[in-house]
Amino acid sequence: MMLHFNFFRPGWIWLAGLFLLFIGCTSSPFGADEIAPDHRSIQGFAKLQDTRHYQGIYVWLEGLNQGTRTNENGGFKITLPPEAQLPGVNSLDGTYKLYFFVANYKTATAQVAIRKGEFLYGEQDLDDKGFLRRPVTLVKILDIETRVEPKWARGNSTNPINVITSLQAVNDSVEVLYPNSIGGLIGGILFRSLETDKVYLEAADLGLERALVENVGTFPRSRRYIFSLDRLLVRLPVGNYEVVPYLFIQHPEVPEQLILSLGVNFDEISATYLNMPFQRKGGHFRVID
């Protein structure tokens, strides 16, 4: 005997309608509280005032030491970790600052509220969907440009090569720190391979705990580092490099924990220095056979 199912019987119509009602609602059809979305994440956009290159702005949430970087469009997302991963997060209550950091730009902040381990959408600088109400804009405070003379050399060259870094404040003077500086020179440089991203270090005598502090104004200042390829700590393979000067810009308004979260060590030059977000120009150098 063949069985026939009639999906158009009144009972089936009633059940289908009830199913559609459930999947189409964001609140309970029986008068219960609104079905809450996940309030453990926030999103937004940040940009730099003078360029369309928005990738790499460091976004850091105080209190939880949570950080991320913006994508090529300036977008970011921060998610609170689960209680098992960060004990105590579910009992957080208060207003916290969200920092937007690039070393040679003025640091910007936004305010977010957290209660019982969840962001409060619609409060402080968040809209009711967990997005920043408006994009954050960072304003440049210092121009940094490096040139290498000559721009290329053979790997076994004994000739001196000059790395000259020019600094110029955009408006107000900026305090710049050069660790391990000797005789007014830059205390160290980093070579980042443009082919492999590997980093090579070159520094003055790291045993000398010297630092030069300089107030840089709107009149350009230059500092240099001199090396020869045959006397580097590690020989550079043939290839193209970005030469990066080792210096820090003083930001009294930035929590020390933010800098530490980047893995940067003020006391010792290392590859982690490149975790510090900068907007630099120039510094290109090539090693040939």
Rank of each mutant, 00 (worst) to 15 (best):
R224V: 00
E256C: 00
P277W: 08
R231T: 12
R223A: 04
G184F: 03
F266V: 03
L233Q: 14
R235V: 01
F191R: 01
Y246Q: 02
L260S: 12
P252D: 10
A271I: 00
A271G: 11
E268C: 01
F227H: 04
I269R: 09
P179W: 05
P179C: 08
P252T: 05
V170G: 05
F219W: 07
A169W: 11
P220D: 07
R221W: 06
I182N: 15
Y200R: 03
T158L: 08
S261C: 06
N240R: 13
L247T: 06
V174H: 09
D230N: 15
D197Y: 10
I164M: 10
S193R: 04
G155E: 04
G183H: 07
L262C: 12
V216Y: 12
L232R: 01
D205Q: 12
P255F: 09
P237S: 09
L274H: 04
G239V: 09
G207C: 01
E202P: 00
E209G: 10
T158F: 07
R192M: 10
E209D: 12
I249R: 15
I182S: 15
Y273F: 15
A153S: 15
N240H: 08
I164H: 00
T158S: 13
L274S: 06
D197C: 02
Y246E: 01
G184T: 12
P277E: 02
D172E: 15
L260R: 13
L232M: 14
P252M: 10
F266Q: 09
G217L: 01
L258Q: 01
L167R: 05
G188N: 06
K198Q: 14
E195H: 11
Q250L: 13
Y241I: 02
